[in-house]
């Protein structure tokens, strides 16, 4: 690994100042499971590494009013077993539990998984279906951004110079909400998703009042199948055709062919995974 200067800020303000001064030559270190590997391979050669873990209090999960607030440095292993997350945001617990291996989940953080902006990030679909937003600090103060607009392209987000994601704010779904997450990869552990999907359905008087389907690894950024969602909404639970929803979702994605799967295979798997996720949720009602 190429040597670098190393910083241990003790507040978000100090970290933002450092990041602003050092500019694009600096990298933020959270769990390190991506950054350390990239530095070893020479893909990233930062002049300065700013360790965010020396800032106290950025790894807490709390219920605040109608929202769950998750500190950006919350480790994926903690997210996966948190009683609050499992009860209120089960798709996120499942997504967090699908990343990498147990050892990686003991290091990797939610903020890191999102800020890498990988199209296959396993925590992104669950946050998209729950319409989460990100709390972002910069030298000019703080702002909040919807996760739906945060990702721009592989590895690119709307974060500007000197900005740091400090927390993820997730509205608690209504009581009659069911959620799930499914990941497809060649191995059950340690693999990168070929396709992943999160589905959240909310019901009111027997009808689906809100349908959310998010898919990963099928476009330059994780995305929602908005037309399929609109087609499901308003239908009675007993009349929702999960297979037809799957076919419709497959028409909304734009996958590429790469070493993990062809475009055609991914589209087919979007159909299968969406159908499976919907069927399993409809059975739970």
């Amino acid at each position: 690994m190429k040597p670098f200067d190393y910083y241990e800020p003790t507040s978000i303000g100090e970290a933002c100042s450092l990041l602003g001064e050092l500019g694009p030559a600096a990298s933020l270190l959270a769990g390190g499971t991506d950054l350390v590997v990239r530095m070893k391979r020479g893909v990233s050669e930062p002049v300065g590494v700013i360790n965010l873990k020396t800032i106290p209090g950025s790894n807490e999960i709390a219920l605040e009013g109608g929202n769950v607030r998750i500190g950006a440095l919350t480790r994926l292993a903690d997210l996966a077993v948190s009683p609050l997350i499992r009860a209120k945001l089960p798709a996120l617990a499942l997504g967090a539990d699908s990343v990498g291996t147990p050892q990686i989940r003991n290091l990797a953080t939610l903020g890191g998984n999102l800020c890498n902006a990988s199209p296959c990030a396993d925590t992104a679909p669950a946050l998209l279906v729950s319409e989460a937003s990100l709390q972002i600090s910069g030298r000019q103060g703080t702002r909040q951004e919807s996760i739906a607009s945060f990702f721009l392209a592989p590895g690119k987000t709307t974060l500007s110079a000197g900005e740091i994601v400090t927390a993820i704010i997730v509205p608690v779904p209504s009581l009659l909400t069911v959620q799930t997450f499914i990941k497809l990869g060649p191995r059950k552990s340690g693999d990168i998703s070929v396709v992943n999907t999160a589905v959240s359905l909310s019901f009111d008087g027997g009808r689906c009042a809100r349908a959310r389907i998010a898919l990963g690894s099928v476009a330059p950024t994780p995305l929602r199948a908005r037309e399929t969602e609109a087609w499901i909404e308003g239908q009675e639970a007993s009349s929702i055709d999960a297979a037809e929803a799957g076919r419709r979702a497959a028409e909304e994605v734009r996958p590429i062919s790469d070493l993990r799967g062809s475009q055609e295979y991914r589209k087919e798997m979007v159909s299968v995974l969406t159908e499976r996720a919907l069927s399993s949720l409809l059975q739970k009602l």
Binding site: T33, V37, K40, N51, T101, P102, Q103, I104, N106, L107
Partner: peptide, 22 residues
């Protein structure tokens, strides 16, 4: 690079890849 796990050690009670940690 965190795939094989032979570098696993325990830090504060949790198993982690020592190759991925500074």
């Amino acid at each position: 690079e965190g795939e094989c796990g032979t570098c696993t050690v325990i830090v504060d009670g949790r198993n982690v890849n020592s190759c991925m940690m500074l």
